[in-house]
């Protein structure tokens, strides 16, 4: 670009640069409902991450009678070992948020890269990858996740691995569909005319353009991940017992429903709250004109 250009050429280059710049300006400010939901999630994360600093009991300390109802000392009651359900609930929320965040980030990165490459490069790569994605999506996610747990063996990391594996195809499919749309647009042609490499175009032009759609997908994937981890733990295939997980707590609670109602109610309320916040976040981002849902209208 150091070579001096004829005036009309310079003009073309500046138009092209302008087009590229405008492709990045689509970022809309978050609406007030989005900010409220994100705020709620951040507060939940801060409260649960700092739990060890302020919680009155440790997660596995027998601090009361077993299966006691709610009281001032134990707002959600106690479990079958006399542990405080509220404290374990907070640690369970922390685990669920961790699963949601790591799935959204890791599966989002891998899946989007696969989908963008398939959509941009096309050809054999595209059909091979999409066949694989379709095949994976045909299976119930819980079955895939359980099979992974059975093979790898249960540990704290396994449910996260399982949720990441089942979420990758979802991201790949969404990223591919959006890439196919963006690939046709003028600013991509312009960047190609300027001699940008495929990798550069994907990273600098297409990725920012499809980012809003990927954000919606990330919120959905987070919600699915929370649900999946809870289901795995509920079936006894998730996090191992001493670590508090909301799904595992409900599995134990199921055996004591006639003795304690609070044990069966509160852990599920936590799951319900997190999942609903994430689904509402996805809906509000989509309503804001970002998602595949809104584009269809």
């Amino acid at each position: 670009m150091t070579m001096p250009l004829a005036p009309e050429c310079r003009n073309t280059v500046s138009t092209v640069k302008d087009l590229i710049a405008r492709s990045r300006e689509r970022h809309r400010p978050a609406s007030s409902s989005q900010r409220a939901i994100i705020g709620a999630l951040v507060v939940l994360a801060l409260v649960s991450v700092t739990a060890s600093l302020w919680a009155p009991y440790a997660a596995s300390s027998q601090s009361g009678q077993s299966l006691a109802g709610p009281s001032w000392a134990h707002p959600f009651g106690t479990d079958e070992l006399g542990e405080d359900i509220f404290v374990r609930f907070i640690y369970g929320i922390r685990l669920s948020l961790l699963v949601a965040a790591s799935t959204a980030v890791v599966a989002g990165a891998i899946g989007s890269a696969i989908g963008m490459a398939a959509g941009y490069v096309g050809g054999v790569l595209d059909s091979a990858m999409m066949r694989a994605v379709d095949f994976m999506l045909a299976f119930p996610t819980l079955v895939i996740a359980m099979t992974i747990v059975a093979i790898v063996g249960p540990s704290t990391a396994t449910p996260v691995l399982a949720t990441i594996v089942v979420s990758v195809p979802l991201f790949a499919r969404v990223a591919r569909a959006s890439t196919l749309v963006e690939r046709q647009k003028e600013y991509v042609l312009a960047a190609r005319a300027l001699g940008a490499s495929s990798g550069r175009i994907m990273a600098r032009q297409i990725l920012p353009a499809i980012m809003p759609v990927l954000r919606v997908q990330a919120a959905i994937a987070g919600a699915l991940a929370v649900q999946l981890e809870a289901s795995l733990s509920f079936l006894g295939m998730g996090v191992r017992p001493p670590t508090p997980s909301l799904g595992a707590m409900l599995n134990t609670a199921r055996q004591y429903l006639s003795q304690s109602w609070s044990y069966g109610v509160f852990p599920g309320l936590g799951l319900f709250g997190i999942i609903m916040l994430l689904i509402m976040l996805a809906n509000s981002m989509a309503d804001n004109g970002d998602g595949p849902v809104a584009r269809k209208r």
Binding site: S231, F234, L250, A253, L257, V265, G268, I275, I279
Partner: peptide, 13 residues
């Protein structure tokens, strides 16, 4: 948003 197994537990309760 309701986890199916929690809905089941609430129904049992």
């Amino acid at each position: 948003s309701i986890p199916t197994f929690w809905l089941g537990i609430l129904a049992i309760l």
